[in-house]
């Protein structure tokens, strides 16, 4: 593979357009020659500046308080919950502003059992804040995750901890599992740092019924239509 072809892969990766066999080829090239990653980053910097073609439009005033609530409402709640229950499994109960339902993963065994048996029947906004737990398996057995419906923002908040660090070439990816066999919907990457992470998932309203969520490990920069690897975390009821 000559320099020009590698630069083409770098350019397409920067534009988020790599797919197919080129994804693996690019990852291998990046591992062998980190200087290529700098080329990609420079291209990405150029591409990002294209966004500045948008006319500056004042953000709605209400957005500020919404963002602050989402960020600091969760932080405050999380801090309070952590102080109140430090004997829990290391789970910090959390919330994301007034609109976000409180997660409390700790508690009595019957509560846990009830939560684990939850089958998400409806992803619509009136779903009554269903709550789903995901367990890790194999070398990911220390990992746990939870997903809760946020009726205010009409989406799911997923939080996880105990996630093993991945090589730079791979990312955690979240999937919603539909009612039918093989019905899997990509919910995007799960950003994890120091084993923890939190992400907002926009549901697909066309999916009337879901049975749960799962997480797989996928090559970075890819947008697979279906999981390319076995699930490493999954709603226990869905485990085969």
């Amino acid at each position: 593979m000559n320099r020009e072809h590698l630069e083409e892969l770098a350019a397409l990766d920067a534009l988020g357009a790599l797919d197919g066999e080129d994804v693996a080829a690019w990852e291998a090239a990046g591992r062998e020659n980190p200087a290529l990653l700098r080329v990609r980053d420079e291209f990405a910097d150029v591409a990002a500046r294209l966004s500045l073609l948008a006319a500056e439009t004042p953000a709605p005033a209400a957005l500020r308080s919404r963002v602050m609530d989402a960020v600091f409402g969760a932080e405050t709640k999380r801090a309070n919950e952590t102080e109140r229950d430090e004997s829990s499994f290391g789970w910090a109960a959390w919330a994301a502003a007034a609109a976000v339902a409180l997660l409390a993963l700790v508690g009595a065994a019957e509560t846990t059992a009830r939560k684990e048996s939850v089958v998400v029947r409806d992803a619509r906004p009136d779903a009554g804040a269903p709550f789903v737990v995901l367990d890790g398996y194999g070398e990911f057995s220390e990992a746990k995750a939870s997903v809760v419906w946020d009726s205010g923002q009409r989406g799911w908040w997923m939080q996880a901890e105990g996630l093993p660090a991945l090589p730079a070439t791979h990312r955690y990816r979240v999937w919603a599992i539909g009612e039918k066999d093989g019905e899997v919907y990509d919910c995007g990457e799960f950003p994890a740092a120091n084993g923890c992470g939190r992400v907002f998932l926009s549901p697909d309203p066309a999916v009337g019924s879901m049975r749960g969520f799962a997480v797989s490990v996928e090559p970075a920069g890819t947008k697979p239509q279906s999981p390319g690897t076995p699930m490493v975390l999954i709603t226990p009821a869905l485990r085969g």
Binding site: A54, A55, E56, P58, A59, L63
Partner: peptide, 11 residues
């Protein structure tokens, strides 16, 4: 950043 990110998102 709010205005510029909002404008960008809107685009």
């Amino acid at each position: 950043y709010a205005n510029i990110l909002y404008a960008s998102a809107l685009k």
